[in-house]
């Protein structure tokens, strides 16, 4: 090994920066999906590395389900402001009001409703490319995704007919109305993300670290207790997601490993107080990251079905 050698994180970094610059050069109206979660935090650092000292050549977009952890929203807004980026927020509520999304009776989770909300935002702003933080190691259907993942006029992914992706030559061409989803972190693992956060000394929302929180047991996992319903002039956004009498509330020392929203995220019991603790915990983990997400466990093909419909 000579001195002109990249270690695995440096290799993943140069690959991701190359991908981001291809987006800036090839698309007219790209957008970066920034939720405040750990993967999109890495995306932001890569964007800084790719484009500074210029301003980031794309705005940020976040689709809110209305069930977000407040800590995450605070972090998202602060980080976007630090970078001087334009943050666009669209909500599932808006999409429902506009008739773009239709909640299924009895289904509390709004995870699936993010899809029409995202497609609505793409149409509203004429985005031709969305950069996202998805990783192939997250889930079996994601493992088949390309760096540049083509979506047709309906936002759909056709896994059987993907463009072959050869060397580092990305085919970024889309016609009017079509768009591209681009995943610079495709080759990163959960461990790589945390090692990168450590190396780059990136701030993450405090809910990734252990804290005391009221939780209840549902669907085999610890679900965070939703905030109280104070504004009684409106319907309770967490109706159906509150603990039932046979689901006692427990005060636990927990953290999140992956963040969806408060309904879909399982808290894990953990004493991890620092990035080093988290890295040690993942190294010893016996379940995958997505094992704590109810949305993925719905069925063997849960992710595949959502992606075909245009989900991120």
């Amino acid at each position: 090994m000579n001195s002109y050698h990249l270690d695995h994180l440096q290799y993943l970094e140069t690959e991701a920066i190359h991908v981001m610059r291809e987006v800036a050069a090839e698309f007219e109206r790209p957008v970066l999906l920034f939720s405040g979660g750990k993967d999109s935090i890495c995306l932001l650092r890569l964007a800084e590395k790719a484009f500074l000292p210029s301003d980031l050549p794309m705005p940020f977009l976040n689709i809110e389900t209305g069930h977000e952890f407040p800590e995450l929203l605070e972090f998202r807004d602060r980080r976007a402001a630090q970078l001087g980026a334009k943050l666009l927020v669209r909500t599932v509520d808006d999409a429902i009001a506009k008739g773009l999304a239709m909640p299924k009776p009895g289904v509390v989770s709004r995870n699936q409703l993010q899809t029409p909300a995202l497609l609505g935002a793409i149409e509203e702003f004429h985005f031709d490319c969305c950069i996202g933080g998805a990783r192939r190691d997250e889930e079996k259907a994601r493992a088949k995704e390309r760096f540049f993942s083509f979506r047709d006029g309906f936002g759909q992914w056709d896994p059987k007919n993907q463009r072959p992706e050869i060397w580092n030559l990305y085919n970024a061409r889309v016609n009017q109305g079509e768009n591209m989803r681009v995943f610079p972190l495709s080759n990163w693992t959960e461990m790589d993300v945390w090692e990168y956060i450590k190396r780059e000394q990136l701030e993450v929302p405090n809910i990734y670290f252990s804290h005391t929180r009221d939780c209840f047991r549902r669907g085999g996992q610890w679900t965070p207790l939703p905030p109280d319903h104070t504004d009684t002039t409106k319907p309770d956004p967490y109706a159906g997601a509150r603990p039932k009498p046979n689901e006692p509330i427990k005060k636990l020392v927990v953290r999140v490993r992956t963040i969806a929203d408060m309904i879909s995220t399982g808290m894990i019991e953990s004493p991890a107080e620092s990035v080093d603790d988290i890295i040690a915990e993942i190294a010893a983990a016996r379940v995958t990251e997505r094992g704590t997400r109810a949305d993925d466990r719905a069925s063997e093909a849960a992710m595949e079905d959502r992606k075909k419909a245009g989900y991120f």
Partner: peptide, 23 residues
Amino acid sequence: LTDGLRAEREQGITIDVAYRYFA
């Protein structure tokens, strides 16, 4: 483990490139 798409599991074949990561 690698045959991630429904058609693949049903037909017992691999349709597309699947990427895996281990250390």
